[in-house]
Design a binder for these strands. Structure first.
Lengths: 110, 110
DNA sequence: CCCTTACATGTAAGATTCTTATATATAAGC
DNA sequence: GCTTATATATAAGAATCTTACATGTAAGGG
């Protein structure tokens, strides 16, 4: 798994990205991120929940309590228009970082 | 320029990478990193100096005071064997992060 | 000679984001 | 009844960034 120092700052992009495909609750987000990156990128729930709270404060996502027929409560998040608008420049910034590090060091592009 | 949240954690890799080419002092490292990434990656010296200190504590780099003929003192850092050994897995970790984010989102590979 | 810019290093206060540990509670399967 | 999976949350602490402050030398122009 990718270490803490390296993956620092990726949670925001990861969350916005999985939410782009549709509304999700925190626990499921963590599962999808791990699954879609084949286990390379993994967030503990203790890191994820405060992050979701902060992103909601910033207006990028909006959470709503839902109770499934089984009786379990979930906080279902969806992208806000501001969140959608944020995703594109954020992706661009990450792409620029990749390019910069490639020029600086010899990081392979997978 | 790439924002603080995104570039977080890159200083370590950047420093080890520029030092791989030869010994350097802090001020010059900052200049080279900015130059080699065409201004995309930029570190303030206030971020760089404490980082150099921490990396020296960890045994990855070793600094030595030098006084140039002009009379200016510089702290010249060079990679230690441990620092050289650290570089390879660190690069691999960053490459894995790139791969993971590419799968997760639609970050272009520059 | 003075002033500004470039060189060169550092410290301090504060924000953000991660870690591990702890806590609670329901549902499903054995 | 017990364990595992689902689901959310908080707390203490570490690491890395930010801006602002602080110091001093060297070189070049006016």
């Amino acid at each position: 798994m990718i270490g803490a120092g390296v993956k620092r700052g990726t949670a925001e992009l990861a969350i916005l990205s999985v939410l782009e495909e549709g509304p999700l609750h925190g626990y499921e987000m963590a599962r999808r991120i791990e699954e879609q990156t084949k286990g390379a990128l993994r967030f503990t729930l203790a890191a994820l929940y405060p992050m979701l709270y902060r992103m909601e404060q910033r207006g990028w996502i909006r959470g709503a309590w839902e109770t499934s027929q089984s009786g379990r409560r979930k906080r279902c998040y969806r992208l806000t228009p501001a969140g959608k608008k944020k995703l594109s420049p954020l992706r661009k910034e990450w792409a620029e970082l990749f390019g910069a590090l490639k020029r600086l060091t010899k990081v392979a592009h997978a």
